[in-house]
Design a protein around this nucleic acid. Structure first.
Lengths: 231, 231
DNA sequence: ACCTGAACACCGTTCAAGT
DNA sequence: ACCTGAACACCGTTCAAGT
């Protein structure tokens, strides 16, 4: 086979040249594999076969690095959500966004930890627009849309942060099942006089499904929105 | 005046002896004054006129220190909430808990940042019981109480984390008004084609009240609960 | 038993020196 | 212009040595 392209000189090899994209990509890989604590500039530099200082030519700080990684994950979630015209489609789209975020954070727990930390970061803004933009089709009056979108977003953030925390303790210690069983045991041993509620729902904690419970919360807010329209 | 008590010997003075309570108290003072970044074992030791290592005789780690400070703040909030029997009293109690948490986090932003970080920490457990324990009087069926309490708790956590983040950027940079105005400006300049929702609600962002918006979210979940009962 | 504070094993970030 | 990697200014935590 004749060689149509001139042979690359090893010394001018740019395949592994540094770039923001490659840095963020490597950061995501480390975050997924080792967790937030594993992402250090030294580890990142080692993986990219360079010095720690080189990274600062493309990324201003560790916070910016985390923000960019977070934005990337959220963009991917929102890309899949279809348009909506009818109330049914609107409710479905919002559920899809919420579930997409839930699954993304299950896969990348550090997103759940970082999203609430930097206010109005790009990913958050896109998420807010995505949710708010479906409320019209849901029939929510304009004057109520700001509060409604904010309530949905805050609920998602709360679950996100919580799930990220669960994932972190899981890495450090026992698996999910064990952790849930231990917590349920502790609740059952609480005095029914001082902790009637926890004592009662301990059984539910042991067998509940995080994803189902998450959806129930979204439905609760959506039901509140629907009730407000004819109230 | 005759001296009824023997004069204390300076060398046996125990008024400033170290104790977990004094350490947590000092930690809260530093956290409120300097923020999370200001709380270091060196700064804490300096304030308590001791060595950094001494603190480890009373507190196992920085995380435990933050957890104990957080628990203290939450206990104080929950102490003020009255019992409830009627649905109206139940709704009022839940609103009081939520508002109490909102104000406490406004005063101690680090609580909002730490509460979602350690899963099922004591403060969280107390909060969950407090909310769940009012759902009976609200008329929520037992089978729905676990999910309902969890939705309310997660919403509160989301707002808490968000407010803590806002407070942090406020300390670093501009005040709340300026930050809101800047964000609103940015939203108004977004293309109405790509960001119809944000473009539209930018005006509301500039004039909205965080506390009112927080309450609107709680009311939304409560409305959803009420709607579910006859649905 | 409790305290002291130097020491250890790290961090994020900077910056002179190289190419 | 970009990279290198030693150096700086910190951390949380440990631990021999003191009282």
């Amino acid at each position: 086979m004749t060689c149509m392209t001139p042979p690359r000189q090893r010394s001018v090899r740019r395949a592994d040249a540094l770039s923001t994209d490659r840095i963020v990509e490597a950061a995501i890989e480390i975050l997924d594999a080792e967790g937030e604590r594993g992402l250090t500039f030294r580890a990142l530099a080692a993986r990219l076969s360079t010095g720690a200082g080189a990274i600062y030519h493309h990324v201003a700080s560790k916070e910016e690095l985390l923000t960019e990684a977070t934005t990337g994950v959220i963009e991917r979630v929102l890309a899949d959500v279809p348009d909506s015209a009818t109330p049914e489609e609107g409710a479905r789209a919002i559920t899809l966004i919420a579930l997409g975020m839930f699954d993304a954070i299950d896969e990348h727990p550090w997103v759940g930890a970082h999203l609430p930390v930097v206010p109005w970061q790009p990913g958050m803004v896109r998420l807010f627009e995505s949710i708010g933009g479906r409320l019209d089709s849901l029939g929510v009056p304009e004057s109520a849309q700001f509060n409604a979108a904010s309530a949905l977003l805050n609920y998602i953030l709360g679950v996100a942060a919580q799930n990220a925390a669960n994932a972190r303790t899981r890495v450090a210690g026992a698996g999910r099942e064990e952790f849930m069983a231990e917590t349920a045991d502790r609740w059952e041993q609480l005095s029914p006089a001082s902790y009637p509620f926890l004592h009662r729902v301990a059984r539910q904690l042991r067998h509940h499904d995080d994803r189902e419970q998450f959806l129930a919360g979204v439905d609760l807010v959506l039901a509140g929105l629907a009730a407000g329209q004819d109230g």
